[in-house]
């Protein structure tokens, strides 16, 4: 009896998995959201570390070793690698911290903060540290960045990244960002590049790996992270929320939830991407969700970004 019940449960789980996962399932979802699937692979990109590269002809130096670059029109310091005789992650210029290898869309969130110099900034889910280094760079190595990550293993990469780029304004903790308020600090700016389900443009096995269950689990975690971030933010402070997921549960629906349940409001941003969706599978969202930016895979990988501020500033 118990075995047959277990078998029944197992078959139900398999059925659910088949119903709520797979390439066709997700492609159909994207179609419902207004985007027709195209198989796209994210292009390799780099970001010049302006603090370190000041006065150095970095583009000419890279060209001389066979790295051809193409300016990314919507980024200040971003370049696509249009051809290279060498690995861009192994040149002398990379090892000297003059640039970082960072996908185009991933360069957008830190650039959305206003006036970072001298501020106290929280990078809530920081490892492996690409955005932490970008924030430090935009701050001109002034102020303080508190970088947290729950994985100690990944923090080694973050520390290496900071050392390679010679930034000295960060303090790093092995800590779950859901406990960030235990630091007893208030932050002027918070970057919440939340753990997410990812997208097919940066993971060729994405459709085989992911189910709607994963998306729902990540969405719940992201809500917890948003709650904690709001607690740690000064009134009027800025919170940049981003994911590399295409699923609205991790993006627009979370932002709709945040403006309705937390002391946060969405600010209009001017960056690459389409307006956030305000009609998701028949559900109408707060109109301010349109201020978010959704990047369907194309010029960039799949990405979502939103700027929020804490009310009362």
């Amino acid at each position: 009896m118990a075995i047959s019940r277990l078998l029944e449960k197992f078959l139900f789980t398999v059925k659910q998995f088949r119903l709520m996962s797979g390439r066709d399932f997700f492609i159909n979802r994207y179609l419902q959201l207004g985007w027709e699937f195209r198989g796209i692979k994210a292009r390799q990109a780099i970001r010049i570390n302006q603090t370190n590269a000041k006065g150095k002809s970095i583009l000419e130096r890279l060209l001389s070793v066979g790295v051809k670059l193409e300016k990314i029109p919507f980024l200040d310091s971003g370049y696509w690698v249009s051809g290279s005789k060498v690995s861009v992650g192994a040149t002398a210029e990379y090892l000297l911290g003059l640039y970082s290898v960072q996908e185009a869309a991933a360069q957008i969130p830190p650039a959305l903060f206003s006036d970072l110099k001298g501020k106290t900034v929280l990078d809530a889910c920081a490892a492996p540290g690409g955005k932490t280094v970008e924030v430090s760079d935009l701050m001109g190595n002034t102020g303080v960045v508190v970088a947290l990550d729950v994985s100690k293993k990944r923090l080694a990469a973050l520390a290496n990244h900071l050392e390679r780029c010679h930034f000295s304004n960060a303090v790093v903790y092995n800590m779950d960002a859901r406990s960030a308020s235990k630091l007893n600090l208030k932050f002027d700016k918070i970057l919440l590049d939340a753990p997410c389900s990812g997208n097919f443009a940066s993971d060729p096995f994405w459709f085989k790996r992911r189910t709607l269950k994963d998306v729902e689990r990540n969405s719940a975690l992201q809500k917890e992270l948003l709650c904690e971030a709001e607690k740690c933010l000064v009134p009027g402070g800025e919170l940049i929320y981003s994911t590399c997921s295409l699923e609205p549960e991790e993006n627009e629906l979370n932002m709709d939830w945040a403006v309705k349940n937390l002391n946060l409001q969405i600010k209009e941003i001017n960056c690459y991407g389409e307006k956030g969706l305000t009609d998701v599978f028949g559900q109408t969202l707060d109109p301010s969700v349109a201020y978010c930016r959704r990047m369907w895979p194309g010029l960039t990988q799949g990405f979502f970004v939103c700027k929020l501020t804490k009310r009362g500033g």
Partner: peptide, 21 residues
């Protein structure tokens, strides 16, 4: 690690890394 005065106040006992390694 070499830290600034400001960073020193924030670098509590259990930090993983701080300032200039």
């Amino acid at each position: 690690y070499l830290v600034s005065e400001r960073l020193k106040k924030l670098a509590r006992g259990n930090f993983y890394a701080a300032g200039l390694y």
